[in-house]
Design a protein around this nucleic acid. Structure first.
Lengths: 168, 168
DNA sequence: CTAAACTTTCAATAAATTTTGAAAGTTTAG
DNA sequence: CTAAACTTTCAAAATTTATTGAAAGTTTAG
Protein backbone atom coordinates (compact mmCIF):
# COMPACT_ATOMS: atom_id res chain seq x y z
CA UNK A 1 0.00 0.00 0.00
CA UNK A 2 1.10 3.53 -0.80
CA UNK A 3 2.23 5.50 2.20
CA UNK A 4 -0.11 8.37 1.40
CA UNK A 5 -3.05 5.99 1.06
CA UNK A 6 -2.13 4.40 4.37
CA UNK A 7 -2.04 7.80 6.04
CA UNK A 8 -5.48 8.63 4.69
CA UNK A 9 -6.87 5.32 5.80
CA UNK A 10 -5.49 5.90 9.26
CA UNK A 11 -7.03 9.38 9.38
CA UNK A 12 -10.41 7.96 8.37
CA UNK A 13 -10.26 5.05 10.80
CA UNK A 14 -9.28 7.25 13.69
CA UNK A 15 -12.06 9.68 12.78
CA UNK A 16 -14.70 7.00 12.96
CA UNK A 17 -13.40 5.58 16.22
CA UNK A 18 -13.57 9.06 17.66
CA UNK A 19 -17.14 9.50 16.46
CA UNK A 20 -18.30 6.41 18.32
CA UNK A 21 -16.71 7.73 21.49
CA UNK A 22 -18.36 11.11 21.30
CA UNK A 23 -15.46 13.04 19.85
CA UNK A 24 -15.97 15.23 16.82
CA UNK A 25 -14.79 13.43 13.69
CA UNK A 26 -12.98 16.40 12.20
CA UNK A 27 -11.17 17.07 15.43
CA UNK A 28 -9.88 13.50 15.45
CA UNK A 29 -8.89 13.74 11.82
CA UNK A 30 -6.99 16.96 12.32
CA UNK A 31 -5.18 15.34 15.19
CA UNK A 32 -4.45 12.20 13.17
CA UNK A 33 -3.13 14.34 10.33
CA UNK A 34 -0.80 16.19 12.66
CA UNK A 35 0.36 12.89 14.10
CA UNK A 36 1.36 11.43 10.77
CA UNK A 37 2.85 14.69 9.55
CA UNK A 38 6.61 14.82 9.48
CA UNK A 39 6.79 18.58 9.99
CA UNK A 40 4.52 21.18 11.59
CA UNK A 41 1.44 22.05 9.49
CA UNK A 42 -0.20 25.40 8.87
CA UNK A 43 -3.95 25.97 8.88
CA UNK A 44 -3.76 26.12 5.09
CA UNK A 45 -2.13 22.73 4.85
CA UNK A 46 -4.78 21.19 7.07
CA UNK A 47 -7.59 22.85 5.07
CA UNK A 48 -6.19 21.51 1.86
CA UNK A 49 -5.52 17.97 2.99
CA UNK A 50 -8.79 17.41 4.81
CA UNK A 51 -10.83 19.60 2.46
CA UNK A 52 -12.38 21.62 5.23
CA UNK A 53 -12.89 25.32 5.76
CA UNK A 54 -10.58 27.73 7.51
CA UNK A 55 -13.08 28.32 10.29
CA UNK A 56 -13.42 24.62 10.89
CA UNK A 57 -9.65 24.19 11.06
CA UNK A 58 -9.36 27.07 13.46
CA UNK A 59 -12.04 25.77 15.81
CA UNK A 60 -10.81 22.21 15.88
CA UNK A 61 -7.14 23.09 16.28
CA UNK A 62 -8.20 25.36 19.10
CA UNK A 63 -10.08 22.50 20.73
CA UNK A 64 -7.07 20.19 20.35
CA UNK A 65 -4.85 22.78 22.00
CA UNK A 66 -7.43 23.14 24.73
CA UNK A 67 -7.28 19.37 25.23
CA UNK A 68 -3.51 19.73 25.58
CA UNK A 69 -2.65 17.37 22.73
CA UNK A 70 -1.54 19.83 20.06
CA UNK A 71 0.88 22.72 20.29
CA UNK A 72 1.56 25.82 18.26
CA UNK A 73 4.99 25.86 16.80
CA UNK A 74 6.90 28.87 15.64
CA UNK A 75 8.64 28.41 12.33
CA UNK A 76 11.48 30.90 11.74
CA UNK A 77 10.85 33.25 8.85
CA UNK A 78 7.09 32.48 8.72
CA UNK A 79 4.24 34.66 9.85
CA UNK A 80 1.69 31.87 9.94
CA UNK A 81 1.14 29.65 12.91
CA UNK A 82 2.12 26.00 12.61
CA UNK A 83 0.81 23.10 14.62
CA UNK A 84 2.28 19.87 15.88
CA UNK A 85 0.87 16.89 17.75
CA UNK A 86 2.91 15.29 20.45
CA UNK A 87 4.20 12.03 18.99
CA UNK A 88 4.26 10.23 22.30
CA UNK A 89 1.12 8.11 22.14
CA UNK A 90 1.24 7.21 25.78
CA UNK A 91 1.23 10.92 26.62
CA UNK A 92 -1.73 11.32 24.30
CA UNK A 93 -3.64 8.60 26.07
CA UNK A 94 -2.85 10.10 29.45
CA UNK A 95 -3.86 13.59 28.42
CA UNK A 96 -7.15 12.51 26.85
CA UNK A 97 -7.95 10.35 29.85
CA UNK A 98 -7.18 13.15 32.24
CA UNK A 99 -9.39 15.63 30.41
CA UNK A 100 -12.33 13.29 30.03
CA UNK A 101 -12.12 12.35 33.67
CA UNK A 102 -12.16 15.98 34.67
CA UNK A 103 -14.80 17.13 32.20
CA UNK A 104 -17.20 14.22 32.29
CA UNK A 105 -16.66 11.65 35.00
CA UNK A 106 -15.97 13.84 38.00
CA UNK A 107 -19.04 16.07 37.56
CA UNK A 108 -21.22 12.96 37.36
CA UNK A 109 -19.68 11.55 40.53
CA UNK A 110 -20.55 14.78 42.24
CA UNK A 111 -24.19 14.52 41.18
CA UNK A 112 -24.41 10.88 42.28
CA UNK A 113 -23.13 11.78 45.70
CA UNK A 114 -25.51 14.71 45.99
CA UNK A 115 -28.44 12.53 45.06
CA UNK A 116 -27.44 10.04 47.70
CA UNK A 117 -27.29 12.73 50.34
CA UNK A 118 -30.24 14.86 49.29
CA UNK A 119 -32.83 12.12 49.43
CA UNK A 120 -34.00 12.19 53.00
CA UNK A 121 -36.93 9.77 52.81
CA UNK A 122 -36.36 6.44 54.51
CA UNK A 123 -38.95 4.32 52.72
CA UNK A 124 -37.88 1.01 51.28
CA UNK A 125 -37.92 2.54 47.81
CA UNK A 126 -35.75 5.48 48.86
CA UNK A 127 -33.29 3.09 50.48
CA UNK A 128 -33.09 1.13 47.25
CA UNK A 129 -32.51 4.27 45.26
CA UNK A 130 -29.75 5.42 47.56
CA UNK A 131 -28.15 1.99 47.41
CA UNK A 132 -28.21 2.20 43.63
CA UNK A 133 -26.59 5.63 43.65
CA UNK A 134 -23.98 4.28 46.02
CA UNK A 135 -23.23 1.35 43.71
CA UNK A 136 -23.04 3.56 40.65
CA UNK A 137 -20.81 5.90 42.52
CA UNK A 138 -18.64 3.06 43.75
CA UNK A 139 -18.07 1.56 40.31
CA UNK A 140 -17.54 4.99 38.76
CA UNK A 141 -15.08 5.83 41.52
CA UNK A 142 -13.24 2.59 40.98
CA UNK A 143 -12.91 3.25 37.27
CA UNK A 144 -11.92 6.81 38.01
CA UNK A 145 -9.25 5.53 40.36
CA UNK A 146 -7.82 3.20 37.76
CA UNK A 147 -7.66 6.05 35.27
CA UNK A 148 -6.11 8.29 37.89
CA UNK A 149 -3.39 5.76 38.47
CA UNK A 150 -2.91 5.27 34.75
CA UNK A 151 -2.38 8.96 34.07
CA UNK A 152 0.13 9.19 36.87
CA UNK A 153 1.94 6.05 35.84
CA UNK A 154 4.72 5.96 33.36
CA UNK A 155 4.48 3.81 30.30
CA UNK A 156 6.83 1.29 31.73
CA UNK A 157 4.54 0.57 34.62
CA UNK A 158 1.66 0.08 32.28
CA UNK A 159 3.42 -2.09 29.78
CA UNK A 160 5.36 -4.24 32.18
CA UNK A 161 3.93 -4.74 35.60
CA UNK A 162 0.41 -4.37 34.35
CA UNK A 163 0.93 -6.79 31.53
CA UNK A 164 2.24 -9.31 34.01
CA UNK A 165 -0.76 -8.77 36.14
CA UNK A 166 -3.09 -9.24 33.22
CA UNK A 167 -1.49 -12.52 32.28
CA UNK A 168 -1.50 -13.78 35.84
CA UNK B 1 -35.22 16.17 47.79
CA UNK B 2 -38.25 14.23 46.65
CA UNK B 3 -37.47 10.70 45.60
CA UNK B 4 -39.21 11.14 42.26
CA UNK B 5 -37.27 14.35 41.59
CA UNK B 6 -34.05 12.56 42.48
CA UNK B 7 -34.88 9.76 40.07
CA UNK B 8 -35.53 12.23 37.28
CA UNK B 9 -32.32 14.07 38.00
CA UNK B 10 -30.41 10.82 37.87
CA UNK B 11 -32.05 9.90 34.56
CA UNK B 12 -31.08 13.28 33.11
CA UNK B 13 -27.52 13.18 34.42
CA UNK B 14 -26.94 9.69 33.14
CA UNK B 15 -28.38 10.68 29.77
CA UNK B 16 -25.96 13.52 29.36
CA UNK B 17 -22.95 11.47 30.44
CA UNK B 18 -23.96 8.91 27.84
CA UNK B 19 -24.20 11.58 25.16
CA UNK B 20 -20.65 12.69 25.72
CA UNK B 21 -19.46 9.10 25.39
CA UNK B 22 -21.21 8.47 22.10
CA UNK B 23 -24.24 6.66 23.48
CA UNK B 24 -27.71 7.75 22.48
CA UNK B 25 -29.26 9.86 25.21
CA UNK B 26 -32.65 8.19 25.10
CA UNK B 27 -31.10 4.76 25.30
CA UNK B 28 -29.25 5.80 28.45
CA UNK B 29 -32.39 7.32 29.91
CA UNK B 30 -34.46 4.23 29.27
CA UNK B 31 -31.76 2.20 30.95
CA UNK B 32 -31.58 4.59 33.89
CA UNK B 33 -35.35 4.47 34.25
CA UNK B 34 -35.32 0.68 34.34
CA UNK B 35 -32.51 0.78 36.89
CA UNK B 36 -34.39 2.97 39.33
CA UNK B 37 -37.69 1.18 38.75
CA UNK B 38 -38.77 -1.11 41.53
CA UNK B 39 -40.75 -3.43 39.27
CA UNK B 40 -40.53 -4.38 35.58
CA UNK B 41 -41.83 -1.69 33.21
CA UNK B 42 -43.92 -2.02 30.07
CA UNK B 43 -43.31 -0.08 26.88
CA UNK B 44 -46.31 2.09 27.81
CA UNK B 45 -44.85 2.98 31.20
CA UNK B 46 -41.55 4.00 29.59
CA UNK B 47 -43.33 6.05 26.92
CA UNK B 48 -45.30 7.88 29.54
CA UNK B 49 -42.46 8.59 31.95
CA UNK B 50 -39.92 9.72 29.40
CA UNK B 51 -42.50 11.28 27.05
CA UNK B 52 -41.25 9.47 24.00
CA UNK B 53 -42.96 7.56 21.23
CA UNK B 54 -43.70 3.88 21.10
CA UNK B 55 -41.31 3.36 18.20
CA UNK B 56 -38.52 5.08 20.07
CA UNK B 57 -39.09 2.94 23.15
CA UNK B 58 -39.12 -0.18 21.05
CA UNK B 59 -35.88 0.63 19.26
CA UNK B 60 -33.97 1.67 22.34
CA UNK B 61 -35.16 -1.23 24.48
CA UNK B 62 -34.16 -3.48 21.63
CA UNK B 63 -30.71 -1.91 21.57
CA UNK B 64 -30.35 -2.31 25.34
CA UNK B 65 -31.27 -5.98 25.04
CA UNK B 66 -28.75 -6.29 22.23
CA UNK B 67 -26.13 -4.79 24.54
CA UNK B 68 -27.04 -7.44 27.07
CA UNK B 69 -27.98 -5.02 29.85
CA UNK B 70 -31.78 -5.29 29.81
CA UNK B 71 -33.98 -8.36 29.82
CA UNK B 72 -37.59 -9.08 28.94
CA UNK B 73 -39.58 -10.27 31.87
CA UNK B 74 -42.80 -12.24 31.75
CA UNK B 75 -45.46 -10.96 34.13
CA UNK B 76 -48.15 -13.57 34.90
CA UNK B 77 -51.58 -12.60 33.68
CA UNK B 78 -50.26 -9.89 31.34
CA UNK B 79 -49.99 -9.97 27.60
CA UNK B 80 -47.55 -7.09 27.32
CA UNK B 81 -43.83 -7.47 27.56
CA UNK B 82 -42.09 -6.02 30.59
CA UNK B 83 -38.47 -5.01 30.89
CA UNK B 84 -35.92 -5.02 33.67
CA UNK B 85 -32.34 -3.82 33.98
CA UNK B 86 -29.85 -5.91 35.84
CA UNK B 87 -29.32 -4.12 39.17
CA UNK B 88 -25.74 -5.28 39.50
CA UNK B 89 -23.77 -2.22 38.45
CA UNK B 90 -20.51 -4.09 38.23
CA UNK B 91 -22.12 -6.49 35.75
CA UNK B 92 -23.35 -3.46 33.82
CA UNK B 93 -19.86 -2.03 33.62
CA UNK B 94 -18.44 -5.35 32.49
CA UNK B 95 -21.10 -5.87 29.85
CA UNK B 96 -20.77 -2.38 28.39
CA UNK B 97 -16.99 -2.64 28.38
CA UNK B 98 -17.10 -6.01 26.66
CA UNK B 99 -19.43 -4.81 23.94
CA UNK B 100 -17.55 -1.61 23.23
CA UNK B 101 -14.28 -3.47 23.08
CA UNK B 102 -15.73 -5.90 20.60
CA UNK B 103 -17.62 -3.35 18.50
CA UNK B 104 -15.17 -0.47 18.46
CA UNK B 105 -11.71 -1.15 19.79
CA UNK B 106 -10.94 -4.50 18.24
CA UNK B 107 -11.83 -3.50 14.67
CA UNK B 108 -9.53 -0.48 14.99
CA UNK B 109 -6.68 -2.64 16.26
CA UNK B 110 -7.13 -4.79 13.20
CA UNK B 111 -6.84 -1.80 10.87
CA UNK B 112 -3.76 -0.48 12.70
CA UNK B 113 -2.04 -3.82 12.29
CA UNK B 114 -2.98 -4.03 8.63
CA UNK B 115 -1.61 -0.55 7.99
CA UNK B 116 1.63 -1.51 9.65
CA UNK B 117 1.96 -4.59 7.50
CA UNK B 118 0.66 -3.25 4.21
CA UNK B 119 3.07 -0.36 3.90
CA UNK B 120 6.02 -1.87 2.09
CA UNK B 121 8.10 1.25 1.46
CA UNK B 122 11.26 1.55 3.51
CA UNK B 123 11.84 5.29 3.32
CA UNK B 124 12.48 7.21 6.49
CA UNK B 125 8.94 8.58 6.36
CA UNK B 126 7.41 5.13 5.93
CA UNK B 127 9.43 3.85 8.86
CA UNK B 128 8.14 6.69 10.99
CA UNK B 129 4.57 5.97 9.97
CA UNK B 130 4.93 2.31 10.79
CA UNK B 131 6.47 3.16 14.14
CA UNK B 132 3.50 5.42 14.86
CA UNK B 133 1.02 2.68 13.97
CA UNK B 134 2.96 0.33 16.18
CA UNK B 135 2.80 2.76 19.09
CA UNK B 136 -0.90 3.39 18.62
CA UNK B 137 -1.47 -0.30 18.39
CA UNK B 138 0.61 -0.92 21.47
CA UNK B 139 -1.22 1.59 23.65
CA UNK B 140 -4.59 0.48 22.31
CA UNK B 141 -3.65 -3.14 22.98
CA UNK B 142 -2.57 -2.28 26.48
CA UNK B 143 -5.84 -0.56 27.22
CA UNK B 144 -7.70 -3.42 25.59
CA UNK B 145 -5.81 -5.85 27.81
CA UNK B 146 -6.72 -3.94 30.94
CA UNK B 147 -10.37 -3.95 29.92
CA UNK B 148 -10.15 -7.64 29.08
CA UNK B 149 -8.84 -8.36 32.52
CA UNK B 150 -11.48 -6.16 34.10
CA UNK B 151 -14.37 -7.93 32.42
CA UNK B 152 -13.02 -11.29 33.43
CA UNK B 153 -12.32 -10.22 36.96
CA UNK B 154 -14.84 -10.29 39.69
CA UNK B 155 -15.68 -7.17 41.56
CA UNK B 156 -13.56 -8.24 44.45
CA UNK B 157 -10.44 -8.23 42.33
CA UNK B 158 -11.17 -4.78 41.10
CA UNK B 159 -12.02 -3.28 44.43
CA UNK B 160 -9.34 -4.96 46.46
CA UNK B 161 -6.21 -6.03 44.68
CA UNK B 162 -6.56 -3.26 42.17
CA UNK B 163 -7.14 -0.69 44.82
CA UNK B 164 -4.01 -1.85 46.57
CA UNK B 165 -2.11 -1.62 43.37
CA UNK B 166 -3.38 1.86 42.72
CA UNK B 167 -2.31 3.01 46.13
CA UNK B 168 1.11 1.41 45.85
C1' DC C 1 -60.81 -18.95 12.09
C1' DT C 2 -61.20 -13.63 13.66
C1' DA C 3 -60.42 -9.81 16.07
C1' DA C 4 -58.19 -7.53 19.60
C1' DA C 5 -53.81 -6.69 21.83
C1' DC C 6 -49.57 -5.92 21.29
C1' DT C 7 -44.87 -5.26 18.76
C1' DT C 8 -42.10 -3.91 14.90
C1' DT C 9 -40.77 -1.26 10.96
C1' DC C 10 -39.39 2.61 8.42
C1' DA C 11 -40.21 6.80 5.58
C1' DA C 12 -40.94 11.30 6.88
C1' DT C 13 -39.84 14.82 10.18
C1' DA C 14 -37.50 17.01 13.78
C1' DA C 15 -33.60 17.98 16.54
C1' DA C 16 -28.85 18.28 17.39
C1' DT C 17 -24.44 18.86 15.76
C1' DT C 18 -21.06 20.30 12.60
C1' DT C 19 -19.34 23.14 8.90
C1' DT C 20 -18.99 27.06 6.08
C1' DG C 21 -17.50 31.50 4.65
C1' DA C 22 -17.56 36.17 4.85
C1' DA C 23 -16.87 39.89 7.99
C1' DA C 24 -14.53 41.53 11.98
C1' DG C 25 -10.47 41.42 14.63
C1' DT C 26 -5.49 41.23 15.36
C1' DT C 27 -0.71 41.41 14.44
C1' DT C 28 3.37 42.79 12.06
C1' DA C 29 6.32 44.64 8.29
C1' DG C 30 7.66 48.58 6.32
C1' DC D 1 0.62 55.18 10.80
C1' DT D 2 -1.21 51.79 6.89
C1' DA D 3 -1.87 47.89 4.55
C1' DA D 4 -1.14 43.22 4.00
C1' DA D 5 -1.08 38.80 6.30
C1' DC D 6 -3.06 36.22 9.15
C1' DT D 7 -6.61 34.54 12.83
C1' DT D 8 -11.06 34.49 14.94
C1' DT D 9 -15.97 34.73 15.19
C1' DC D 10 -20.55 33.38 14.47
C1' DA D 11 -25.08 33.37 11.94
C1' DA D 12 -26.67 30.69 8.33
C1' DA D 13 -26.50 26.31 5.83
C1' DA D 14 -25.49 21.59 5.56
C1' DT D 15 -25.08 17.31 7.49
C1' DT D 16 -25.81 13.79 10.69
C1' DT D 17 -28.44 11.57 14.07
C1' DA D 18 -32.66 10.68 16.59
C1' DT D 19 -37.69 10.55 16.86
C1' DT D 20 -42.28 10.11 15.44
C1' DG D 21 -46.39 7.85 14.16
C1' DA D 22 -49.04 5.35 11.20
C1' DA D 23 -49.13 1.10 8.73
C1' DA D 24 -47.71 -3.62 8.63
C1' DG D 25 -46.67 -7.61 11.20
C1' DT D 26 -47.30 -10.92 14.96
C1' DT D 27 -49.36 -13.29 18.69
C1' DT D 28 -53.03 -14.94 21.50
C1' DA D 29 -57.74 -15.30 23.45
C1' DG D 30 -61.97 -16.83 22.49
Amino acid sequence: MELEAAKLKYIQTWGSLATSWGINKTMAQVHALLLVAVEPLSADAIMETLKISRGNVNMNVRALIDWGIVKKEFVPGERKEFFVADKDIWELFKQVTKERKRREIEPVLKVLDELQNDVTATTEEAQQFKALMKDLSSVTNTVNGILEKAIKADEHWLLSSFTKMIKK
